[in-house]
């Protein structure tokens, strides 16, 4: 198939899909034009005059978000270990446990944090604890998968060498596999913490504690100067956490 023919075909498929999507949303040039000045007013209110009086509450909620992220990530970091071990293909001869582990981890990752947050709010009530659980459960999916892949890449030679000493499988895991993978596990957990700082900020909107909770409130109240402060503070926090974690991960490598 020539390049040109392929481009034409793609265009023939993509254009109707786009038009169909826009029709469903009632997007018209007039609406877009009317929206610009409104957005401009809102953004000016938010970022030209953020409400600094509101800072103590923002600070308190930001700290809560960081705590949700930290606790959730820590729990996931521990709970993902058995999943990672189960899903790793190279620890036992049978492929069955590994397949079960991988299916489980995929299933866990399928649930978006926000759905988990709703579920835990139903079970545990509004607040930070529901947020911690949502973050923790969702993170197990990714961490377990990364752990399993790391274990699968462990040097076969060292495992063979310890096998020939008569060491038990448990001893081999503890003294050969763990020392090799642990620094990388810590690195994965730190990376997941970065992502979870973002998630913990967002899931508050549905009531799972943290900065998202007041973000939702102020948005509904249309208090743009307060909203502005919340957004600025959240972005600054995320940037700072990212750069610190990147530095630590560099050291671990």
């Amino acid at each position: 198939m020539t390049q040109k023919l392929r481009s034409t075909l793609i265009l023939l498929v993509v254009t109707p899909v786009l038009l169909w999507s826009m029709a469903g949303m009632d997007v018209t040039p007039a609406r877009i034009a009317a929206g610009f000045p409104r957005a401009a007013t809102m953004l000016t209110d938010m970022f030209a005059h953020p409400d600094w009086e509101y800072w103590p509450i923002v600070q308190q909620r930001l700290i809560e978000s960081l705590q949700i992220a930290a606790l959730g990530t820590f729990l996931a970091g521990i709970l993902a270990i058995p999943f990672g071990v189960l899903a790793a293909r190279n620890l036992v001869r049978s492929p069955v446990p590994s397949t079960i582990g991988k299916v489980l981890l995929n299933a866990i990752r399928t649930f978006p944090e926000i759905l988990l947050a709703y579920a835990f709010i139903k079970g545990l009530g509004l607040g930070a604890f529901a947020g911690v659980m949502a973050v923790a459960i969702h993170s197990i999916g990714m961490l377990g998968k990364l752990y399993a892949e790391r274990i699968e890449n462990v040097d076969k030679g060292a495992i063979e060498a310890l096998t020939t000493t008569g060491a038990s499988p448990v001893a081999i895991f503890r003294h050969c596999i763990l020392p090799e993978v642990l620094p990388d596990f810590v690195s994965f957990v730190l990376y997941r913490f970065d992502l979870n700082v973002r998630s913990a900020s967002v899931i508050g909107i549905v009531g799972a504690g943290g900065i998202g909770f007041i973000l939702g409130l102020q948005y509904q109240a249309a208090n743009y100067p307060r909203l502005g402060l919340i957004v600025i503070a959240t972005i600054a926090t995320v940037v700072v956490v990212d750069s610190i974690s990147a530095k630590i991960r560099q050291r671990l490598a």
Partner: peptide, 16 residues
């Protein structure tokens, strides 16, 4: 196996 030591071409140490 406890009483049989083995060494390998690539040493096979736990590197870290």
């Amino acid at each position: 196996r406890r009483r049989i030591g083995m060494i390998f071409q690539n040493y096979n140490l736990v590197r870290r």
